[in-house]
Structures are given as C-alpha cells and as structure tokens.
C-alpha cells in the first residue's frame, strides 16, 4: 500500500501536467523551433521549400526596410518606457481617499480594457488633419495642421503616443496596488526623520514598490516589442514603410499582398525573437533569484 502511494506521488504530477504540456508543446514550443528551421528555406507556404542556408539572413542585412523596422522597434522600446514613470505619477496623484475615488480609479484604468484596434481607430481619427482634434486645434491657432500619420518624421511617435494611453493605465493599476500595501510604519518613521516629498519617494516608497516596478517594466517591454495591432490599424507600416516595426514587417513579408515569403518572414521573426530572448532571460533570472530565496 505504501509503495502504491509513493508511486502515485511520483506519477501524479505528470498526469496533471500532460494536457497542458501537450497543448503548449504543439502550439508554442515546437513552432519556435520550426520557425527557426523554416528561416533557412525559401518557401511560399504551399509548394516545395528550398534550402537556402543563411541567404535569408544575408538578404536581411541588406534590406533597408529591416533597418527602418529595427530602428522603430528601438524607438518604441525607449518611448514606451515612459509608461512606467507616468503610471507612477498618475497612481501617486490618485492615491487618496476622497468620495468616489474607487470609481475614479477604475475609470482611469478603462483604456486598458478596450481592444488596441479600437484605440488605434480612435487615434487615427484624432490625428486626421481635416476633421480630427489635431486639425481643429491647429486651425484654432490659425496654423496649418500637420498630418501626423502621413509624415515620416512624426508617424512612429504618433502611434506610440496612442499606445501609451492604455499602457500608462496598466502601470498605474500596478502602482496603485503596490502603494496600497506599503508599510505605513516605514512611512511614519520616514516622516519622523523629516523625509518628505521627493526624498521620501526615492528612499522609502520606491524600494518598497520594486515588485510593482519590475512587473511594470516586464509588461511594458513585452508590449513595446509586441506592438502590432496599432500599426496594423493606424498606418499599416506607412507612409512608405516609415512606421514599420519588426512584428508588422514580418507579417507583411509572410502573409500579405507583398508575397508569401515564409522563409524570409521567419528570419525576421527569429531576429525579433532573439531580441526578446535577452529580456526573457533577464526576467527569468530575476524570478529564479526570487525562487531560491523562498
């Protein structure tokens, strides 16, 4: 009997894990390796695939669209990070108890719940120089409104600004929950020591908010590198590919009117994956340190 029970304790975890592992392996783990494999082929998705070795990657190094996308990805990463301090700022602003505060907080969070496609639509309409808000404001001052989404210089920033709207809401909610749990003893102790304002924030509050900050950074980095929906709805990478990012460039190459180049598309995906892997590695490392401590 004892033996049977011990056996059960050994086999049970695998029985419980099997379905999730099966699903995850088929749809996530295996496709990653298959994509890497496909990136060494020239393939239209239907016919025979031809082995081309590193040719796709060599072509990538010579492709201007690739460099534009890569540059935009970096701009996205850097600018999107603004969501973290901005979220903290909004959270600090709202961390009070006045009548109706719960309602205000949830309304501030609202933008995160809506689909990015809808956010993209709203903003592309706002940015329209003929009838959007931007057009109205510029006309009011008697100036010629800029075409934000039609101008290579502004387009990426315009999309990022729209993307920041829901992302700030997300970071805000992380910080609000974090602030809610700050030890009031330490704050009081800090007050007694004469710390207030910025010094209090810097030396007493922020260290305690580290879990919230870490999570905010993780979701913002992932969000920045995953940006696709907004670009697809607002510009489709235009004008002339100037707002393209790797994720959309990949999609365009592999699955759109520009041809079905699965191999070349996969090579782009692999590059994006490698960039993400650096961050994933760091996140896992931090999580591993936490695991070891507990």
């Amino acid at each position: 009997m004892k033996k049977y029970r011990q056996n059960q304790q050994c086999s049970a975890p695998w029985v419980f894990l099997a379905p999730a592992l099966l699903f995850f392996t088929i749809y996530v783990i295996f496709p990653i390796f298959r994509s890497i494999w496909i990136s060494f082929y020239e393939w239209d998705g239907i016919g025979q695939a031809t082995w081309v070795g590193l040719a796709n990657y060599v072509e990538l190094l010579d492709d201007d669209r690739f460099y534009t996308s890569l540059k935009n990805n970096i701009i996205w990463l850097v600018c999107f990070m603004l969501a973290v301090p901005a979220g903290l700022l909004v959270a600090l602003f709202l961390n009070q108890t006045i009548w109706g505060m719960r309602f205000y907080k949830s309304m501030f969070f609202f933008p995160f719940v809506i689909s990015q496609v809808v956010v993209g639509l709203i903003f592309s309409w706002f940015y329209n120089p003929n009838f959007g808000i931007v057009g109205k404001v510029w006309e009011y001052f008697g100036a010629v409104p800029p075409s934000i989404l039609g101008d290579e210089r502004f387009v990426t920033y315009g999309i990022i600004f729209a993307g920041l709207w829901p992302q700030v809401a997300y970071c805000m909610i992380l910080y609000l929950t974090g602030l809610n749990n700050i030890s009031s003893d330490q704050i009081e102790a800090g007050r007694l020591d004469g710390a207030k304002g910025w010094r209090m924030l810097r030396y007493v509050v922020l260290p305690q908010l580290w879990p919230a900050t870490f999570l905010a950074i993780v979701v913002t980095v992932i969000g920045a590198l995953r940006s696709f929906d907004m670009i697809a709805t607002m510009t489709r990478g235009g004008p002339w590919g100037s707002s393209n990012v790797l994720s959309f460039f990949m999609y365009e190459t592999a699955l759109s009117e520009y041809g079905f180049r699965m191999g070349y598309g996969s090579a782009i995906a692999v590059v994006l994956f490698m960039i993400m892997l650096v961050f994933i590695g760091y996140f896992l490392w931090v999580m591993y340190q936490d695991e070891r401590r507990t």
Binding site: P13, I29, P31, I222, M250, L255, F273
Partner: peptide, 26 residues
Amino acid sequence: ALPLFFMFVAGNFVPFQILMVPVRDL
C-alpha cells in the same frame, strides 16, 4: 518542476511572429 515552470513563463513572453508561420501551417 522549475524548468517546466520557466518554460511556461518564457513561452508566454515570446513574440507572436515566431509562432505565426508554423501555427498557420498546422
């Protein structure tokens, strides 16, 4: 246990595009 857990975590963060071609083909 821990490596498998990390596999689920990491898989959750990958860009969709690295899955796109094989998942569509499947």
